[in-house]
């Protein structure tokens, strides 16, 4: 558990003059679920986009599995899977076709892609609907689950989950928790962002709280809670509000 799989050092990124990420450093160990929490606009998605090699940082370095994002994006892309905050799927294709396509784009053979697509759709409880109907006819929860299932194609070693449970019912959310727990049990390393504090509390080994482009706290949920009082009595939401303040963001 102590071997770092991802190392981020002094990451910066601005949009025009706005500093979205302003000097972020952390490491994620192999097999760990690492929570990245923060109010809207804190810079979580921007950080994940840089970690997943699709947005070049202005400054700072990212090393994943021993490869630097500066000169080895190809190797990094083989190790990672991304579940973006905004749904990123082909609305006109079936769930199965979506997974097949992204699987092939991860370099899987047709057979491998088919096998993984079926098992991933089973994880997220969509076996019945796999080939029935276009994804845009799915409910919000089903689309979210397809979005997650796509991220699992190619069996990545490191998974970025950017608010995978936003806007869905407790049943779907529970299904996603269980999927994530199962992935953790298989030894997958996960970076997880969410606005649901009890979710983070339940799933994450360690949590970084980010605000205005910087990390203001980084510890285990237990230790974070102990700062406010007896951890059994305090919930993570109180910690979060205490640290990030009560004023509205964005």
């Amino acid at each position: 558990m102590t071997e770092p799989f991802l190392v981020v050092n002094d990451l910066h990124r601005s949009f025009n003059d706005y500093k979205a990420v302003n000097g972020v450093s952390f490491t994620i160990n192999k097999g760990e679920i690492f929570g990245l929490l923060g109010p809207n606009g804190a810079g979580k998605t921007t950080t994940i986009r840089m970690l997943s090699t699709v947005l070049p940082p202005d400054r700072g370095d990212i090393v994943i599995g021993g490869y630097s994002v500066r000169n080895n994006t190809d190797s990094i892309r083989r190790l990672i899977g991304v579940c973006p905050q905004e749904l990123a799927l082909y609305a006109d294709l079936s769930a199965f076709d979506n997974l097949m396509f992204f699987g092939r784009m991860e370099g899987l053979s047709s057979q491998e892609a088919r096998a993984q697509a079926m098992s991933n759709l089973e994880f997220v409880g969509l076996t019945d609907r796999a080939k029935k109907g276009r994804v845009d006819k799915f409910s919000g929860g089903m689309k979210r689950r397809v979005n997650l299932a796509i991220a699992l194609m190619g069996n990545p070693q490191l998974l970025f989950l950017d608010e995978p449970t936003v806007g869905i019912d407790p049943q779907s959310r529970n299904n996603i928790y269980e999927t994530i727990e199962m992935l953790r049990d298989r030894g997958m390393t996960i970076l997880y962002t969410t606005h649901y504090m009890e979710e983070a509390d339940r799933l994450c080994n360690r949590i970084a709280i980010m605000d205005a482009g910087i990390i203001i706290a980084l510890d285990t949920p237990y230790n974070l809670k102990s700062k406010l009082g007896p951890p059994e009595k305090v919930n993570l939401e109180d910690v979060f509000l205490n640290m990030t303040g009560r004023s509205l963001r964005d």
Binding site: V82, L87, A88
Partner: peptide, 14 residues
């Protein structure tokens, strides 16, 4: 706009 292009970029396609 629906992020599929960016998502594809994170796969192994150049």
């Amino acid at each position: 706009q629906n992020n599929t292009l960016e998502r594809l970029l994170a796969t192994t396609v150049k």
